Simulated scan of single mutants.
Amino acid sequence: MAADPETPLAGEALLRPVRPGNAFEETVGRLLQTIRLGVLQPGESLPPERELAARLGVSRDTVREAIKSLSDAGYLVSRRGRYGGTFLAEPLPAHTGDHLRVTRAEIDDVLRLREILEVGAARMAASQTLTSAEREMLWARLTDVRGASGDDYRRLDSRLHLAIAEAAGSPSLVTLLAENRMRVNGLLDQIPLLSRNIAHSDEQHEAIVIAILAGDCEGAAAAMLAHVAGSASLLHGFLD
């Protein structure tokens, strides 16, 4: 593809290996950066899957899932045949977060507070001696979100996170987390639900709840940290 002389350097900077733990979400975020920062132009082709996988340090399956998700969201199109491949859509979708008028600093503020509150809530919940009813409620909230439809997912996801805060035993924490969650959901509502991200979130939710029920404070905190980091990658990718 034709490219500006600086494009290879920009591409190298953006398409660098992702951090482990949230490979799908970070791959989506990196591809969105190359698109929205103009490293690639509408109508130009992405590098081949094999090259992207090698540069990002992920499997070709992960690259394929990320490309499919961005195709579903209208950013990419696939063409078959001799001159086939994956190309940027013409035109690209309108910037998802344009009407929000949020800055990167504002997004960072919401997400950093979320990390402080939710990682702390998971660690504290794991330190508590939960009653049978509390343990059953936590597992029920997990089961609900795992079976949620697209329309109900955000609501039931929020309810699980609030249940974790309740299990931490601090009403003040629940209030603060609920307020922050409203801000987080305001951002999440502006980006598409990606089926692979939901499946990954379900796995992370289960790891968090199992660690809490096992009394594993550091395991619960680490699992929650990985979970919120995945959401942060997608939000920055779509909204920055």
Score class of each variant (00 low, 15 high):
124 M>W: 00
75 Y>M: 12
99 H>E: 09
118 E>W: 00
78 S>T: 15
118 E>Q: 03
154 R>M: 13
128 Q>M: 12
133 A>H: 07
149 S>M: 13
103 T>D: 01
119 V>F: 03
135 R>F: 07
79 R>A: 12
95 H>V: 04
70 L>F: 14
108 D>N: 13
157 D>I: 11
138 L>Q: 13
149 S>T: 15
130 L>Y: 13
128 Q>I: 06
119 V>E: 02
89 A>M: 01
98 D>A: 15
73 A>C: 11
136 E>G: 12
113 L>P: 00
159 R>D: 15
88 L>G: 05
142 L>C: 11
116 I>F: 05
150 G>N: 12
132 S>A: 06
155 R>K: 09
94 A>I: 08
145 V>K: 02
78 S>W: 08
148 A>I: 14
136 E>T: 10
100 L>M: 09
90 E>W: 05
158 S>R: 08
122 A>G: 02
105 A>K: 13
161 H>P: 02
166 E>P: 05
72 D>P: 01
165 A>N: 07
148 A>F: 13
97 G>E: 00
159 R>H: 13
137 M>F: 14
139 W>F: 11
122 A>V: 01
112 R>V: 11
84 G>A: 07
93 P>M: 06
164 I>C: 01
161 H>W: 05
154 R>T: 14
125 A>Y: 04
76 L>K: 02
102 V>R: 08
123 R>G: 06
142 L>E: 14
151 D>C: 03
145 V>G: 02
168 A>V: 12
166 E>G: 04
131 T>G: 06
114 R>K: 10
160 L>N: 01
155 R>Q: 08
156 L>D: 03
165 A>V: 06
149 S>Y: 13
161 H>C: 02
164 I>S: 02
86 T>N: 07
78 S>G: 08
92 L>V: 13
166 E>T: 14
151 D>Q: 14
107 I>R: 01
